[in-house]
Design a protein around this nucleic acid. Structure first.
Lengths: 351, 351
DNA sequence: TTTGGTTGTTTAAACGTTTAAGCTATCTTC
DNA sequence: GAAGATAGCTTAAACGTTTAAACAACCAAA
């Protein structure tokens, strides 16, 4: 690669000091009392030589990189890639760029990712934390490193965060199913201690209880993250092939769970919403194209991304008259919408 | 944020020079003849003080950031986010990280994105180039900046690239449709001069010609990128609502086109594959859940991502005995697979 | 005892910026 | 015409690394 032109090159070319060039190119000519014709010449040669400032050098000197690190479970999951896109746009509006990494829901990978990004001096992190990463995050917090959690959170960790009201979302979903006449609801969730997932489960149980719907052994089924395909297939096989006593509806806790579940339902030629009612968390193009469009719980990736960046910017771009401190914490809980469509229409009376 | 600990801090803490610390932490104790017990003490305090090297400083000194810039049309498009994930993993294996940006198929945005990433001193770029970005890329090439094009390419630009054989893919798709009895095929493509898209169109026309299938005014329909939803809706409305003379099948040039097209088809209660045969480029979860699973042309995002990184690494990590030069160029054309499913099954004889 | 080698460590420059402080003319003002 | 202000520029240090070169102390061989 060709050597890039630096401020030094411009200075040498004009026979002046680098300071002068720097002042002009940073539009500080007034404060630095640079002569107007000199300023013009500098600007001209900078353009002529196609000068591009070296942000690395600038960062070293300023201690700021104007870079945000984004850590999600998997950037190829539409939920996260949508958020990534929103974050990219918002960051760009504030002259920040984004480095990303996928943790695969793995605490060790998360740890090395966080370290790699910090070594690269990102100014802040946006993290959808994996299970067992509490300690890593506590350390970050202790070091007063700025970050925002998205999607998930921890009870024992007081940190910035943006998430939906998971409990209520599940709760409403069950109510909706019940109103349509479904009684034997099965929730398919991830097997994890992450509170956002626990909330979804608890919202489910709370609604079941209040509605006086009896629980079954299949009421809550759990899949691992790593072997989701096999696990969900096994669950569905066990439940659906038991003609005697099977659920009449499913509440899927994420889009990936739903997609894997639906594939199994399809294989068995069961008809939705007659044989089975379905609701899922998250969005997916797939939900629109299922023969019977899925009722889903919409988490606004737009809002999650925007608010996460907003919270960070508030913290990073400390205004002179700021009142907040590093230890203050913002937690935003967004209300998720249930989007009713056809996958749990009025249940037939027959069963 | 708490001040980070530097090599200087460790040196001061031990009363030695920074050089010594640097040698040890870079495992150059042998070459630098550092005493073994000193080395141990340095390592110990480094761990104790939780030292994290400042990559920015290291980059400034070395001129390398071990960072790859990724520019795609839209990171939230599954095709690109899948590629992004593969690139992330491959990069990580080589100790690189990835910064990304979305060009929105817009040349100006692409330009400012390229500049922003270069200012940040990325070592290389992986780009899915937008229309009219040829000149920007020629400039890059001229400056011998390392980059690989993915998905798209330019005829007049000799650069590294990884893409599928678009012409042949289209060609085979038409053959497949014809074999199933479809004759009045409509290709829905993007209105762009990008050669990969032109190739898809030309493959279509070539096959039509060889099969002696007559062309209609609807044979090739084009949508803009910016207003895809409106454009595709208008196209489908015009074609489908004309009962007299309408296509009997569609070849969609991308997943987004297909998804928008299918929504319109659904609205009109037309049945696939009886009333209409369908093939689309790219993958999508949605294709699996369309009531009649879509036949599609699979571009292996896995291979595209991996090969792109491999080509870059070959160029960046110049081995001592290297034979290739900066001006050498690798172009990889991957064979795309047609995955036959139900959306263009044996066409009924009735029409 | 000198010469030379080895070992362990320090010095200092460099990477490309930014910016406070310093310097030198020239211009006001009385 | 002396004092002070102002305009226009330069010097130099700093950010956190890396690394060639220098240095000092010791040891071995002649």
């Amino acid at each position: 690669m060709q050597k890039k032109v630096s401020i030094k090159d411009i200075a040498k070319h004009l026979g002046v000091s680098t300071a002068l060039v720097s002042y002009v190119l940073n539009n500080k000519e007034k404060e630095a009392r640079v002569g107007p014709e000199m300023a013009e010449r500098i600007r001209a040669t900078a353009k002529e030589m196609n000068y591009q400032p070296n942000m690395i050098a600038r960062s070293l000197q300023s201690g700021k990189t104007r870079t945000i690190g984004l850590i999600v479970a998997d950037i190829s999951n539409p939920f996260f890639s949508n958020i990534a896109r929103v974050i990219e746009d918002e960051a760009s509006l504030n002259n920040y760029t984004v480095i990303f990494g996928s943790s695969d829901e793995n605490a060790e990978k998360s740890d090395s990712l966080i370290n790699a990004l910090i070594k690269r001096q990102v100014d802040a992190l946006i993290i959808a934390p994996a299970e067992h990463t509490e300690e890593q995050l506590k350390l970050l917090r202790q070091q007063k490193f700025p970050f925002v959690l998205i999607d998930r959170y921890f009870n024992t960790l007081d940190a910035n965060g943006v998430r939906i009201n998971n409990f209520l979302a599940s709760y409403k979903a069950v109510q909706h199913l019940a109103k349509q006449g479904y009684k034997k609801i099965c929730m398919v969730a991830y097997q994890t201690r992450l509170p956002h997932m626990q909330d979804r489960k608890q919202g489910f149980f709370k609604a079941m209880e209040e509605l006086k719907l009896p629980l079954h052994e299949f009421s809550l089924m759990e899949s691992s993250y790593e072997r989701i395909q096999e696990d969900v297939a096994a669950i569905m096989q066990r439940l659906l092939d038991n003609k005697k006593d099977r659920p009449d509806s499913f509440l899927f806790a994420t889009n990936s769970l739903a997609i894997n579940g639906l594939k199994e339902i399809n294989k068995r030629k069961l008809s939705v919403p007659d044989d089975l009612g379905i609701i899922s968390f998250d969005e997916s193009d797939a939900f629109d194209f299922f023969y019977c469009p899925l009722t889903y719980i919409n988490q606004s990736t737009e809002r999650i991304g925007k608010e996460a960046v907003r919270i960070l910017m508030n913290q990073l771009e400390e205004k002179p008259g700021k009142t907040s401190t590093d230890s203050d914490t913002t937690q935003l809980v967004i209300d998720a919408q249930l989007i009713p469509r056809e996958s749990c229409g009025e249940k037939k009376k027959k069963r």
